[in-house]
Design a protein around this nucleic acid. Structure first.
Lengths: 133, 133
DNA sequence: AGAGCAGTTGACGTTAACGTCACTGTGACG
DNA sequence: CGTCACAGTGACGTTAACGTCAACTGCTCT
């Protein structure tokens, strides 16, 4: 069974390859207390749980969360011993973030429209070659 | 007519109030060669042209351009002596930026959808109070 | 002349998320 | 036994767009 346990653990390099991050990033996340891999001697070994956490971290980043927010949310999950107050908090953060993202999208749409108009205008004045449609 | 000329010029404070920026910002833009107000003694005086430039700068920022890009575009406008190669370049930048913005929007939409799904899921599992619809 | 305020310059601080070095340690291999 | 590659630990660098602060200068009011 020892080989099984070994298979569960990954070195920093394996993690980097699996998740497409750099060693620096993993160590950075550790310094920020987002990860806490086991130490065998001086080296790090990442468990399945660590991998799950990292996956959550990266997904959080795709959502535009800051690492600090992600850390808090992750900590809540950890301390979630049946009591759902923690999950509630996590969801609140999510709802908040969702609102921010939708606001951001609205602004982006505005800017896109404005810029498009600008370009169309320049074309109309013949100041510039027409775009591809 | 002197009063007219004076009316055309604005102090740094007036500029700040008019455009809702700080003095630091204006001096910063100047250091970055985005603006070049007149100097009367040691003080800065901003002309109508300066105001137009600042307006363009701020609009550029709303579009998500970096100051350096804005500077280049502005410089192109300035040196635009009939030859439209410059304008063309400016428009190319605009088209490029437009593409970036639309890509960004697509990503944002994805993230929003994912996050929404996540939240809906949590609700369905009764892990958390339902949202307002 | 003294007070006070606007304006100026220059230098350093800030935030986020790492990158880049330099140096040390360690296990494996030939 | 040498050395090679990979790990690990600081510490400092990077980018953008300013904020903050200190120390002046200069003008105006009284």
């Amino acid at each position: 069974m020892k080989s099984d346990l070994r298979k569960e653990m990954m070195t920093i390099r394996e993690m980097c390859d699996a998740f497409e991050v750099t060693p620096r990033t993993l160590r950075f996340y550790e310094a920020k207390e987002l990860l806490s891999p086991e130490r065998v001697g001086t080296k790090r070994l990442y468990s399945k749980t660590d991998r799950a956490r990292l996956a959550l971290i990266l997904r959080g980043k795709r959502f535009g969360f800051r690492l600090e927010d992600i850390r808090q949310t992750l900590d809540l999950y950890d301390r979630d011993d049946g009591n759902s107050a923690q999950r509630k908090r996590a969801c609140e953060l999510g709802v908040q973030r969702l609102a921010e993202m939708e606001a951001q999208r609205a602004n982006l749409d505005l800017a896109i429209a404005e810029l498009k108009a600008e370009l169309t205008d320049a074309e109309a004045k013949g100041l510039v070659p027409r775009r591809a449609a």
